[in-house]
Amino acid sequence: MSEIQTVLDLRRNAFGKLLFVDAEGTTHEGVVPVRAFPIAAPDEGISLISIDGHELAWIDSLQQLPAAQRSLIEEELRNREFMPEIRSIRKVSTFATPSEWEVETDRGETRFILRGEEDIRRVADGTLLIADSHGVQFLIRNRYGMDRISRRILDRFL
């Protein structure tokens, strides 16, 4: 395992998979970036993992990388992770569960079914994870910073 200082030898192969060349000159195909703290510190603590699950490199912060390498890692993370962030709650079908929620996310408008209040988890102060009936995780980064209607709806379920 090596610590990344400023530049990664990181690129895509002809099939679109990430390639990483380590300090010894060994090329690793199919490298996967993994966030250590995906909710609390998404741009800090990134590990590059080999196809067989071994850590190849540690990145303290994405900001320390040149734009090209940072862009490759961010693109790979976006393709791998699917956790829409709820910006506002438009309406809910009922305040009893199960209920249908209509929300605006960072990826557009959507609807989902909340099976029960236990599917809303407090992660940190003001941060919530909501699991829909299909297991998709929705993130609310700061419930206190949401609009008044969204906060009122959430308060009814918390």
Rank of each mutant, 00 (worst) to 15 (best):
S2C: 10
I4S: 08
I4T: 14
I4H: 01
V7I: 15
L8T: 05
L8C: 04
L8G: 04
D9A: 14
L10E: 09
A14D: 10
G16W: 00
K17R: 09
L18I: 05
F20Q: 06
D22E: 06
D22F: 07
T26F: 14
T26M: 13
H28M: 00
E29W: 07
V31P: 04
V32T: 15
V34K: 08
P38H: 15
I39Q: 03
A40K: 14
P42C: 04
D43Y: 10
E44G: 09
G45P: 12
I46S: 01
I46T: 04
S47I: 04
L48N: 02
I51R: 13
D52E: 12
G53T: 07
H54M: 08
E55M: 15
W58H: 12
W58S: 15
W58E: 09
I59D: 02
D60N: 10
D60W: 05
S61F: 15
S61P: 02
L62N: 11
Q64L: 05
Q64C: 07
L65G: 03
L65D: 01
L65N: 05
Q69H: 02
R70L: 00
S71E: 15
L72A: 03
E74Q: 10
E74N: 07
E76V: 11
E76T: 12
E76D: 13
L77I: 14
L77V: 09
R78F: 03
R78T: 08
R78A: 11
N79G: 14
F82A: 13
M83P: 09
I86K: 06
R87Y: 07
R87K: 13
S88V: 05
I89N: 00
I89C: 03
V92W: 05
S93G: 05
S93V: 01
T94N: 04
F95W: 01
F95S: 08
T97W: 13
T97D: 02
T97I: 08
P98G: 11
P98F: 08
P98W: 04
E100T: 11
E100S: 12
W101N: 09
E102M: 00
V103M: 05
E104L: 12
E104D: 13
E104R: 09
D106F: 01
D106C: 01
D106Y: 06
R107N: 05
G108E: 05
E109H: 14
E109I: 07
T110Y: 07
T110P: 01
L114Q: 09
R115G: 08
R115C: 13
G116H: 05
G116M: 06
E117N: 12
D119I: 10
R122N: 13
A124F: 11
T127W: 06
L129R: 14
L129E: 15
L129D: 15
I130C: 06
A131K: 10
A131W: 14
G135Q: 06
V136R: 15
F138K: 13
N142R: 00
Y144R: 07
G145V: 06
G145M: 02
G145F: 00
M146A: 07
D147Q: 01
I149A: 08
S150L: 03
S150F: 00
R151Q: 15
D155H: 08
D155C: 01
F157M: 03
